[in-house]
């Protein structure tokens, strides 16, 4: 008897399979659509946000600019008016509202350069940082303290007090040398140097499109 029932059921096995397959396919149609967000998860974003690598100090940047480090890409996120008035040497101008333009993407979505955002203070640069991080871009940093800090520390460094530790003097010496590189003239150096401003040659930045390791074809 069991055998006969089994045979009976087996007669419909293809029908059952077909129905199962259609149900599976139909399930895809009926599933609630979910919003897919690109980029990294909130947890990753948080861990990037509290990572100390997020900031680059003005000294680091000055050092890299003086040594003409080819790996950094400075991006000024202020508007173009301010950019024209003053900016860091070789900096690119991507105003915050234009951050997501296709043009900007070429510079942000790549892995050849260490991108450093800066604005007058931290705030706009931080916003740009968060957005870029959220999109999953790599090697994004913020200039700590922005241009204000740049002026305070590099362009116009304060002389350390007599009783401060030795490395403060070393830092001061470096900052002073750096500021001279960036065109600040000190009275004591006027004698040897003519007053002509040292123009840093504009370097041409070419960014190769990021090559994703997309799989190649089959046959």
């Amino acid at each position: 008897m069991i055998n006969r029932n089994l045979v009976k059921a087996l007669r419909y096995r293809y029908v059952l399979l077909a129905v199962g397959l259609i149900l599976l396919a139909g399930g895809l149609v009926l599933l609630p659509k979910q919003e897919k967000h690109k980029g990294i998860t909130s947890a990753e974003l948080l861990s990037n946000a509290i990572s100390p690598e997020r900031y680059m100090s003005t000294d680091e940047i000055a050092h890299k600019i003086v040594n003409q480090d080819p790996s950094i890409l400075l991006i000024d996120v202020r508007d173009s008016l301010n950019y024209q008035k003053y900016s860091l040497p070789n900096a690119l101008n991507i105003p915050l509202p234009k951050l997501l333009d296709d043009n900007s993407m070429t510079f942000l979505n790549q892995d050849q350069y260490e991108v450093v955002f800066f604005s007058n203070d931290n705030f706009d640069a931080d916003k740009a940082w968060i957005i870029s991080n959220r999109l999953g871009f790599k090697n994004i940093h913020v200039l700590k303290g922005g241009l204000n800090s740049w002026f305070k520390t590099i362009i116009n460094p304060t002389m350390p007090e007599e009783n401060m530790p030795a490395n403060a003097f070393e830092q001061y010496r470096f900052r002073k040398a750096a500021s001279m590189y960036f065109g600040v003239v000190y009275p004591e150096s006027v004698i040897q140097q003519s007053t002509e401003q040292k123009k840093v040659p504009k370097k041409v930045i070419t960014v190769k499109k990021k090559k994703k390791s997309t799989p190649e074809g089959g046959c």
């Binding site: 997309t214 799989p215 190649e216 074809g217 089959g218 046959c219």
Partner: peptide, 10 residues
């Protein structure tokens, strides 16, 4: 695993 399909003539 690999992001692409099978192949034979390749």
């Amino acid at each position: 695993i690999t992001g692409r399909g099978l192949g034979a003539s390749g």
